[in-house]
Design a protein around this nucleic acid. Structure first.
Lengths: 166, 166
DNA sequence: AGAGTATAGTTGTCTGGTCAACTATCTGTC
DNA sequence: GACAGATAGTTGACCAGACAACTATACTCT
């Protein structure tokens, strides 16, 4: 009588409407959100979302500095991608690089005072955007449910390091 | 797309843990999912996710053809981006362009038999991926809940055209 | 009918990202 | 303590998209 359960859903057929709504909905929502947030941030402060995230992670880190590899993982970028992003931010004076005393291969990205200042100004914009476009649509319980859902899909997704830094 | 009301309430309070888990969780889950799905598809069939989506939409459309602008909106690409993607697909023989009799400015992208064949083969891979990486983690009720959430965030996100085409 | 505006698609140019290769350094094993 | 991988970061080459400009066509209004 076969109300389809998780385990008995056929695997070879097309996605049904329910599945499509959940799946494509996420793709579309993500695209719309990131595009809008990036436009806000870049428009208001000339700071693309990816740059903002670097500053944000650095600001939340011990000594306002992070190893490049960790930073790359945090902002979801390849190491080379982060190298180039860091180049740009360094050129703008928002971060600087420092060599790592305990590992001569390594480098820290360090938030400069100018970078911290920029972040402080941009944060209001970004947080307002995240709230008005995303968070406000959900109750606290629903946010927990969502977080739990992400955790199921990608273990560690919700419980990432660098929390509580905006 | 830009948030125009951001100045009305400059709530720059940090996000709390609950909010961060829900928000960053989505960013991370999305990144991980699309990366994994693209790798699957491209690895198995030399067909990137974006190409797959074009074929999929065409296959589900009336006469296996769509106007370029509609296709661009469906796959979430700029018009120029779609022009270039269509160029590649046409070069591979998976689609062809046809002029539009009712509007001389317009062009159809039409799925070729080779494209339909390619899609048929790749679909199993993609659907299996979407199921194993995403859908299987949720009950039917939860999928409905998710779809409803997307709809709240971006009206129309879940109820997009081109449904029921895999 | 003609003028003015809007739209479809393509193109030039640029940016931001990936991957693979490279150098320098670290670590574990014999 | 030297050698054989691993690992950190950078660089070169390349690619996919975005945006703006352009051409051609369609629509609207008088």
């Amino acid at each position: 009588m076969a109300v389809t359960s998780i385990t008995s859903r056929p695997d070879s057929r097309q996605l049904d409407e329910r599945e499509l709504r959940a799946w494509r909905g996420m793709l579309r929502a993500h695209a719309a959100l990131t595009k809008a947030l990036d436009a806000d941030l870049d428009g208001a402060h000339g700071l693309p979302l990816s740059s903002y995230e670097v500053l944000m992670y650095l600001n939340g880190a011990e000594g306002r500095r992070m190893r490049m590899r960790d930073l790359a993982a945090s902002v979801i970028l390849s190491r080379s991608g982060l190298t180039r992003l860091a180049d740009r931010l360094e050129r703008e004076g928002l971060i600087r690089r420092e060599s790592c005393p305990s590992d001569a291969r390594g480098a820290y990205a360090v938030l400069t005072p100018a970078g911290a200042e920029k972040l402080a100004v941009a944060r209001a914009t970004h947080l307002a955007g995240v709230r008005s476009l995303f968070l406000q649509h959900f109750s606290e319980d629903e946010l927990d449910t969502l977080a739990e859902a992400w955790e199921r899909v990608v273990p560690g997704a919700a419980s990432a390091p660098g929390l509580a830094c905006g």
